[in-house]
């Protein structure tokens, strides 16, 4: 029963959660909260699927004791009391399913982390040869004809700006762009992106994970703008976005179109009123519910039992 509830939740969640989160109008006002919600939604569905598999595998009388029972059942499955003959066929399927989910997760995340690490090292090698550090702006300058600014995360992170960008931006705008890039580095946005992409790669074709990947990539830009806007006039950030996004040679067929540039500019020019405390608390509560919900459902028979037990003791006094 519990297994069915969790499995239905996981299946429905992959289809419905992205729509629910896509509807949220405030998401561009509070990008950090929106990122947390997307990641929590992904975590929630994965946890529910794994719990569902474990609940289906464990003997039903053990599940009755809730999470401790679940953990004990899982240990019994893995531990020295392991007896393949005693496990019903149904349970083998469930264990296989949980194993597949974990394997896909490991493969997706591991693959992304490895590829990124290799690419970053290559790029850092190139920067070591052709880049030069400019102490005045505190960034690596790359002699290159395309106006660009980016950051290279890693053990020795680098903020990079091309000579073409330096030519097309006035110093104030350069400072704003570099603040945006440093916000990416300080916020560890590359890790968020790696997780989002790893999930999308682990579970291809599931709307929740593909949407989470593209949304998080978009939201980190908004977040970095907000951080940069603490120290720099918002209009400078907007102007820099426009001039870096204009006249880009089509040599790089980047998937993202101009929509995000438009959103970013209008956000910078017309700052929205920040979320009220109540709205923030609702958001944080939603993250908590998403992450703990599956565990609570998995443990619910045990909780019910505990409540009943306490009711009895209370009734005695």
């Amino acid at each position: 029963m519990i297994a069915v509830v969790l499995a239905v939740y996981a299946a429905a969640g992959t289809a419905l959660l992205p729509r629910l989160l896509g509807w949220a109008r405030w998401r561009d006002h509070a990008p950090r909260l929106a990122i947390s919600l997307w990641l929590a939604a992904c975590g929630s569905v994965i946890l529910a699927a794994i719990f569902a598999a474990i609940a289906a595998a464990a003997p039903s009388h053990r599940i009755g004791h809730g999470l401790t029972g679940l953990a004990r059942a899982a240990l019994a499955l893995l531990g020295n009391r392991f007896d393949p003959a005693a496990i019903p066929v149904r349970a083998w399927f469930a264990i296989g399913a949980a194993g597949l989910i974990l394997a896909a997760l490991a493969q997706g995340l591991g693959g992304v982390l490895y590829v990124t690490w290799r690419e970053r090292r290559r790029h850092a090698e190139m920067l070591a040869v052709v880049g030069r550090h400019d102490h005045r702006i505190g960034a690596t300058v790359l002699d290159y004809g395309e106006p660009m600014a980016y950051c290279l995360p890693g053990r020795r992170p680098k903020t990079v700006i091309t000579t073409a960008a330096l030519r097309s931006l006035v110093p104030d705008h350069v400072a704003a762009v570099l603040a945006h890039e440093r916000a990416h580095l300080r916020g560890r946005h590359h890790l968020l992106l790696a997780v989002a992409q790893g999930l999308a790669r682990a579970f291809p074709g599931l709307p929740l994970f593909t949407r989470a990947g593209s949304e998080i990539a978009r939201l980190v830009e908004l977040r970095a703008d907000d951080v940069a806007a603490r120290r720099h006039p918002r209009v400078h950030i907007a102007a820099a976005v426009v001039s870096l996004a204009t006249g880009r040679a089509p040599a790089f067929a980047l998937g993202a179109g101009g929509e995000n540039a438009l959103v970013r500019v209008s956000r910078m020019l017309n700052p929205a009123t920040p979320l009220r405390l109540r709205e923030k608390l609702i958001g944080v509560a939603a993250v908590a519910v998403l992450l703990t919900g599956p565990a609570i459902i998995a443990a619910s028979p045990g909780l019910m039992g505990a409540v009943m037990h306490h009711c009895y003791t209370l009734a005695f006094f």
Partner: peptide
């Protein structure tokens, strides 16, 4: 590569059509 691999370098790359800009 970073088209599918935004994590390699987090970049400031947006594109605008001439009309938009």
């Amino acid at each position: 590569r970073s088209e599918n691999q935004a994590a390699t370098l987090v970049h400031f790359l947006e594109r605008l059509t001439p009309e938009e800009s």
